[in-house]
Computed example of a mutant assay.
Amino acid sequence: MKKKVAVLLGGNSEERKISIASGRAILKSLIRSGINAHPFDTRDFPIMHLKRQKFDIAYIALHGKGGEDGSIQGILEYLNIPYTGSGIMASSIAFDKKKTKLLWKSAGLSVLPDIYIQKEDILKNLDIFLIRKFYKLEYPILVKPNNQGSSIGITLVHSKDQLKNAIKIAFNYSNNILVEKFIKGTEYTVSILGEKILPSIQILTKNNFYDYTAKYKLSSTKYLCPSELDLKQEEKLKKIAKKAWNTIGCNGCGRIDIILDSNNKFWLLEINTIPGMTNRSLLPISANTIGISFDELVLKILNKTIISSS
């Protein structure tokens, strides 16, 4: 029997536009491969309709809240519909930057120092809180929402007088934020497909870091794959990525962002359990380097779900 696949896209998160682009690319690819696939925008259609419309599998192309945080995964499990990507627990942890870093640190992996702030901590008097908490802070620092993707809401802060505004911006996107040590280094990303660690990509941007503009708007951003690391460093990077992936308990496919500092040390930055699948996305670039076309990649992700659910 031919399986009916729902490509979940859109949603209500800040990453809606990116999700639609990913979802459409996946949908077109599945149709090219002869799959009975249909788009399903979770903003406009109740997810419970999936069962009524007799969908067999959900291909998740939702980015951000409602897609990567375990909530949609929980509903799909309740509906008994297999889905692509990581499960409820791994998705939920991976979407929480602080919890992810705590687990990585407990596993002996290197993460950048940070200060974790909850909105309730500073509602009464932000100025007094800042004086108490940040009097020894070394600039520059990154202020980022704890639960957000695509570098949305992140500000690079160079001095104390910029901090207050950066914190307010981050709190627009999350009730918890991270104030993290910033290091200027070489950024890499490592994609994972099932048990396979794909070749790393070096990210070259003219911006201070790989922010939203560099990701989605600047044509000057370059991606090197192979990444120009020597064999020993590439293997070390892959080993770190695999341990980071397994520590969170992820499966399916995903991406891990890492930075190499001036002392030749790798630092884990973030994990992405539902990577972008657009023409600028990094997972397809990495897969293509070892001869996996976009259509093959989309099918491999789908087939892993079919096999695991059978």
Rank of each mutant, 00 (worst) to 15 (best):
256 I>D: 03
220 S>Q: 14
245 W>F: 09
197 I>D: 10
193 L>K: 07
181 K>E: 13
258 I>E: 06
196 K>V: 08
272 N>A: 10
258 I>K: 04
201 I>E: 14
220 S>E: 15
194 G>E: 07
256 I>T: 06
205 T>W: 03
207 N>G: 04
244 A>V: 02
195 E>A: 09
214 A>T: 11
185 G>P: 05
217 K>D: 10
236 K>L: 09
267 W>I: 02
246 N>I: 00
261 D>I: 05
194 G>V: 05
239 K>L: 03
257 D>N: 03
192 I>Y: 01
240 I>F: 09
253 C>I: 02
223 Y>I: 06
199 P>H: 11
182 F>K: 04
208 N>C: 04
206 K>S: 13
262 S>F: 08
213 T>S: 15
247 T>P: 02
218 L>R: 13
210 Y>P: 12
262 S>N: 14
200 S>L: 06
246 N>T: 01
186 T>P: 06
268 L>I: 14
191 S>N: 12
195 E>F: 06
267 W>R: 02
223 Y>M: 06
223 Y>A: 07
220 S>V: 13
252 G>K: 00
251 N>I: 03
184 K>G: 04
212 Y>R: 00
212 Y>N: 11
197 I>M: 13
219 S>W: 00
275 P>W: 07
258 I>F: 05
249 G>T: 01
182 F>S: 04
240 I>G: 08
192 I>P: 00
229 L>S: 14
255 R>E: 02
235 E>T: 07
265 K>A: 07
195 E>Q: 15
224 L>W: 05
194 G>T: 05
217 K>R: 08
198 L>F: 11
230 D>N: 15
247 T>R: 02
256 I>L: 08
207 N>I: 00
269 L>F: 10
260 L>P: 03
257 D>K: 03
272 N>F: 08
263 N>S: 14
185 G>Q: 06
